[in-house]
């Protein structure tokens, strides 16, 4: 191809690409700005974050607010609660949803379509509709203000069942049949053939559930009243209501709440995005 004719569009293309990249990186900075400021403000001496003119950089970086969070406000306890509840919810939801999703995909039975449609219809029901009666129900079990009470709604999720079901459909029946011919029970087939093959989607589901539980707010807010059982977001919300004046302290606890979620996402990014997409593209 002769060069001269193509040079002008090439320059235009280069400029366009330059502008595009500039816009993208500025946009990225704008998106990250609140999170960066949160971290920086958490290290400012008290009062500096609400000064005029505002500052970005702490004059004397300090960890005193973090120390207060752990010593006098006992946020370490809430951190543990959040972690424990998220881990437990993940384990429970993996058990329930993988069994159900696998059954719907790989075990044909009369009425399967009806069960499937029933679950599909539930996707439209917002979780808040049943909350009041659920609270009254758990109250009669004595589960209010217990970890169980928080975990109950995350035992099984329609979304999780679908995620597994969609994925499990791609398992070749021949593999399962081979195991059956060897005389394995259905549970055995599920355990040693189905589950290992579903591992990628289970990782996805696990990350989803963990992050979802970690970030959840409304239900733990309602169920947990004992401060020593509360999760981090709930503790943070009450801190934000009590300590309106202490911006830096709030930022420190916001960082504490946010960092584990962001870290897990960064580590398991691929599985997480795959989860979103398999939800979106199969729809």
């Amino acid at each position: 191809m002769s060069g001269n004719l193509e040079r002008i569009p090439a320059i235009a293309g280069f400029l366009r690409s330059l502008v595009l990249h500039a816009v993208l990186f500025v946009g990225g900075a704008v998106v990250l700005a609140p999170l960066v400021w949160m971290c920086l403000a958490s290290m400012m001496p008290a009062g500096e974050a609400s000064q005029l003119p505002p500052r970005w950089w702490p004059s004397h970086p300090t960890a005193e607010h973090y120390a207060v969070l752990f010593s006098s406000l006992h946020l370490g306890r809430n951190f543990f609660n959040s972690f424990f509840l998220a881990a437990a919810a993940t384990a429970l939801s993996l058990c329930c949803n993988s069994l159900a999703g696998y059954a719907l995909a790989k075990l044909p039975f009369v009425g399967r379509d009806r069960v499937f449609t029933f679950l599909l219809a539930l996707l439209v029901v917002p979780g808040q509709v049943g909350m009041l009666p659920l609270f009254l129900l758990l109250r009669s079990f004595g589960w209010i203000d217990t970890y169980w009470g928080v975990l109950v709604p995350s035992l099984a999720s329609v979304f999780g069942i679908f995620l597994v079901q969609q994925y499990a459909q791609s398992i070749p029946d021949a593999l399962l049949d081979a195991a059956r011919v060897d005389g394995a029970s259905e549970l055995r087939v599920f355990w040693s053939v189905g589950l290992p093959l579903c591992r990628p989607i289970l990782v996805t589901l696990g990350v989803f559930t963990f992050l979802g539980t970690w970030n959840d707010f409304l239900w733990p807010l309602i169920v947990l009243s004992d401060a020593s059982k509360q999760t981090l977001p709930v503790a943070l919300a009450s801190l934000a209501a009590e300590h309106v004046q202490d911006t830096e302290l709030m930022m420190a606890s916001a960082v504490l709440t946010m960092v584990p979620a962001v870290a897990l996402f960064l580590v398991a990014q691929r599985a997480y995005v795959a989860g979103i997409l398999s939800g979106a593209l199969k729809f």
Binding site: G28, M38, L211, N215, F217, P233, V255, T257, A261, Q269
Partner: peptide
């Protein structure tokens, strides 16, 4: 990744900022 980060931040923490 950068544009996605706000999605995984805890809503209460982000709201505080």
């Amino acid at each position: 990744t950068v544009y996605f980060l706000p999605v995984v931040t805890t809503i209460v923490a982000a709201a505080v900022v």
